[in-house]
Amino acid sequence: MIISAIALSLLLFAAGAPAECLGEWSPHVVWHVAKIGKLTSELQLGPNGLLYALCGNKLIAVDENGNKLWESDLPDGSKSGCPVFDARGSIFIPGNALIQEVKLNGSKGWSFKVYQGSSKAAALLTTGPGNLLYMQLPTGLYAVDTAGHYKWMITQWDQVYNASTQLETDWEILASVGNDQAVFVIIGKKKEGYTLMAFGEGGKIRWRYSLGEIKQANLVVGGNGRVYATVNPKRTDDYYKGTVYAFESDGDGSPLWSYAMGCVDLTAPTPSEDGLLYFCADEKLYALNQDDGTEAWYEPLPKAISRPSVDENNMRYYLGTEDKRLLALNTEGRLDWNLTLDGKVSMRPMVGPDGYLYVVTEAGSIYKIKDEAPESDGG
């Protein structure tokens, strides 16, 4: 771990990048930190107000003024999954068949590692029932408490293999998420298709739903106890389509509704308190009604690629593009402004509790941006 406070070397800029304003709101770049590194998961805001950036096998902490406070090397890398925070003041990072605890000051805590045969797959990690950590690997589902104590495991994903003593290492996990009712995992094999499975306390399979032959998927939990999935097939035709699903956590596995479309680039969805579900696909921003999955509206946005974010206080929407722009839309879904940054914006912009936007680019930069309301003094 390297602990430092070297703001000058991070190239902070108060001046804004070129912007095109089509509405009354306008963007203002508060600071820009360059050369952080290419993030491997979305930027995270910790309970202490610091920003945490996971860049390969390094975790980097940045304060609200753009100062890099420290970076910590992580064992075995961290090639997939997002960091998980808890109320005790720890960050849990998934790695190659392990969970690593990192304190909010960058020091390392406990680690939990399992044997998974010859598989080199990196783990996915989420929280779930009982305030446990749930690590998913091709070999099974492992439950650990936040103090690093092993609780239980399921060594085979599908009950048909329960009697086997041979570890199945050719499963592939595409996505996972959890809430206080269950852990939801999309798992399968490339030649056999994929299934969304819901596991309750103790690893009991609550329900499952076949998704067929797909190449990529995303899962998000909503505040209403629902689980939303976007699924991208290997190809599109009359039978295979990109699809958005809604499930009840405590249901029987039958979708509440589904919305299909002929494309294969659906981003993860973003539920909003306004009753709509937002996602980006085919260079458009879509809004669906959460109750029944009907289309509320869509807006063409050339080169748009990131998952959208929603500012619930001002009801404004933000997403990034392949050609280095950050886009802001108003309550009608119309483009208000676009701001050119230093690299492709493929990850969801983060709306902080302070009302500022935090945006990362594939050039390895973090931006702090204020979306200025009409007649704002720009403070």
Score class of each variant (00 low, 15 high):
Ala7Tyr: 03
Ala7His: 01
Leu11Lys: 04
Gly16Trp: 05
Ala17Ile: 08
Ala17Asn: 11
Glu20His: 07
Val29Ala: 03
His32Ala: 08
His32Lys: 12
Val33His: 05
Ala34Tyr: 05
Leu45Cys: 08
Gly49Ser: 00
Cys55Lys: 14
Lys58Ala: 06
Asn65Ala: 10
Glu71Trp: 08
Asp73Asn: 07
Leu74Arg: 01
Pro75Leu: 13
Pro75Glu: 11
Asp76Lys: 10
Asp76Trp: 09
Ser78Ile: 02
Ser80Leu: 12
Asp86Cys: 04
Asn96Phe: 00
Asn96Lys: 03
Ala97Gln: 14
Leu104Gln: 03
Asn105Tyr: 07
Trp110Thr: 09
Ser111Asp: 10
Phe112Trp: 13
Gln116Arg: 04
Gln116Phe: 06
Ala121Pro: 12
Leu124Cys: 12
Leu125Asp: 10
Met135Lys: 14
Gln136Pro: 09
Gly140His: 12
Ala143His: 09
Ala147Glu: 13
Ile154Lys: 14
Ser164Glu: 13
Thr165Val: 15
Gln166Arg: 13
Leu167Gln: 15
Thr169Asn: 05
Thr169Lys: 07
Thr169Trp: 04
Glu172Leu: 07
Gly178Glu: 04
Asp180Gln: 13
Phe184Gly: 13
Phe184Arg: 13
Ile187Ala: 15
Gly193Pro: 14
Tyr194Arg: 14
Glu201Asn: 10
Glu201Phe: 08
Gly202Cys: 09
Gly203Asp: 08
Lys204Ile: 06
Ser210Gln: 08
Lys215Leu: 11
Lys215Ala: 12
Ala217Met: 05
Leu219Trp: 05
Gly223Tyr: 05
Gly225Thr: 14
Gly225Met: 10
Val227Asp: 00
Asn232Thr: 13
Pro233Cys: 01
Tyr245Phe: 15
Glu248Cys: 11
Leu256Trp: 01
Ser258Thr: 12
Met261Tyr: 10
Met261Ser: 13
Asp265Val: 05
Leu266His: 02
Ala268Val: 06
Ala268Phe: 04
Thr270Pro: 00
Thr270Trp: 02
Pro271Asn: 07
Glu273Asn: 15
Glu273Gly: 15
Gly275Ala: 06
Phe279His: 03
Phe279Ser: 02
Leu285Asp: 00
Gly293Ala: 02
Glu295Gln: 12
Ala296Ser: 14
Ala296Glu: 11
Pro302Gly: 04
Asp311Ala: 11
Thr321Gln: 04
Asp323Gly: 03
Ala328Lys: 07
Asn330Trp: 02
Leu335Met: 04
Leu339Lys: 03
Met350Cys: 02
Gly352Lys: 00
Gly355Leu: 09
Leu357His: 00
Val359His: 01
Val360Asp: 11
Glu362Lys: 10
Ile366His: 00
Glu375Lys: 14
Gly379Phe: 11
